[in-house]
């Protein structure tokens, strides 16, 4: 049973790899141009009570 499930899982991973599209976001563009949307969200959180609480900064 274990071997059968393991074989099926391994086979499915091989298939996923074969179908994998090759385009992945270039790393160079990442570090220099982080998502503006992410910035906005993080900024909003930084002003929330959660982040202003001293409990987040115990030291």
């Amino acid at each position: 049973m274990k071997k059968e499930v393991g074989s099926k899982l391994a086979n499915s991973v091989r298939q996923a790899k074969a179908k994998q599209p090759k385009e992945v976001i270039a790393v160079t563009s990442v570090a220099k141009t982080p998502s503006a949307a992410a910035d906005v969200v993080i900024e909003a959180q930084a002003t929330s009570s959660v982040f202003s609480s001293r409990r987040v900064w115990p030291d």
Partner: peptide, 23 residues
């Protein structure tokens, strides 16, 4: 941050959490 923020005052989460997105 939300996880750590739920900790009670008398027992704060043992590690500080900082939120960073840019740079």
């Amino acid at each position: 941050g939300q996880w750590a923020g739920l900790s009670p005052d008398e027992r704060p989460f043992p590690v500080a959490v900082i939120s960073i997105a840019s740079n």
